[in-house]
């Protein structure tokens, strides 16, 4: 490892993380050894592996200046790619919102043969390399594929269209909604539901009025994570997209193309936008979760 490399951000971080007076207080209270070693390792690793590259990206894209930024981002091709990425990510998130909720529900509430198998299978998109997913989905939806052979005569073109892009994005982010909703659904108190059943409420009313509000924070978090992942997905999408400029070219691919043209400023500008979007989504979900935790603590 390149532990000797000390970037400006890293040394800054190590110095300021724990103010000395607090350090003394912490040391007085603890019995266990290893704080200095493990914390040092953690901060060094984070500094070198995670923060240094992100700082470089921010610094290098700041060098371009606002005008340069605007010039890159306002080009029709870049705008078209962002529009496609956004629209497809929204469709993908909608697919996952529906499919994820259905799967979380049946996995928690019902018993059926093969349940364990299905439960394990749900994580497949995280375990399967994205390039493999891309090749597989393209093969399924191409004109001669298992699905394309039925869909294309019916006038539904999936491969090499925005639908294909959305399906690839949806595939790679399947586990987010399911795995965030599942534990919350499992921990729900059944008493309120039972009470509403005895009061004669219809199942759908119970779901909408009682269950949905309780799982809403987890559900929204799962959707936000799925959306974030979809915005940045690359491997699975580039196979099925066809990658036509202005039509089926996603933002991540455009970064790649600019890099191959050695247009580093343009690549870093687009990458900086994707990074900023990721941070905004991360921040929003953190705020959402914190608020939800506070409300739950206040209620109990």
């Amino acid at each position: 490892m390149t532990a000797t490399v000390i970037g400006p951000l890293h040394s800054d971080d190590g110095g300021q993380f724990i103010p000395p007076p607090v350090m003394k207080a912490v040391r007085a209270r603890r019995v266990l050894p290893g704080f200095g070693l493990t914390m040092g390792l953690t901060l060094t690793y984070l500094g070198v592996i995670v923060l240094l590259p992100l700082a470089a990206l921010i610094l290098k894209s700041a060098e371009i200046g606002l005008d340069g930024f605007w010039q890159v981002l306002s080009s029709p091709r870049v705008l078209a790619s962002f529009q496609l990425t956004f629209t497809a990510a929204l469709i993908a998130t909608a697919i996952n919102a529906a499919y994820g909720l259905l799967m979380a529900w049946i996995l928690v509430r019902y018993d059926f043969p093969g349940k364990r198998f299905v439960d394990a299978l749900v994580d497949l998109p995280f375990a399967l390399p994205t390039a493999v997913a891309g090749v597989a989905l393209t093969t399924l939806f191409a004109g001669t594929g298992w699905y394309g052979r039925w869909l294309e005569p019916a006038g539904i073109q999936v491969a090499y269209t925005i639908t294909g892009v959305a399906i690839a994005m949806a595939f790679t982010s399947v586990p987010f909604v399911i795995r965030t909703v599942q534990p919350v659904l499992e921990s729900l108190d059944s008493q309120i539901e039972e009470a509403s059943v005895t009061l004669g409420a219809y199942p759908f009313t119970i779901f909408r009025r009682i269950i949905l509000p309780m799982i809403a924070p987890a559900y929204l978090t799962g959707c936000a994570l799925a959306f974030a992942r979809s915005l940045g997905e690359f491997g699975a999408v580039i196979f099925i997209a066809g990658n036509l400029p202005f039509k089926t070219e996603i933002a991540a691919l455009l970064i790649f193309i600019r890099l191959e043209e050695f247009d580093y400023p343009a690549a870093s500008a687009i990458a900086a936008v994707l990074l900023a979007l990721a941070f905004i989504i991360l921040f929003a979900t953190n705020v959402l979760q914190a608020r939800w935790l506070r409300r739950r603590e206040a209620a109990s």
Partner: peptide
Amino acid sequence: SISPIVAGV
């Protein structure tokens, strides 16, 4: 939450 492409860049 960061796109792998962004990480590469």
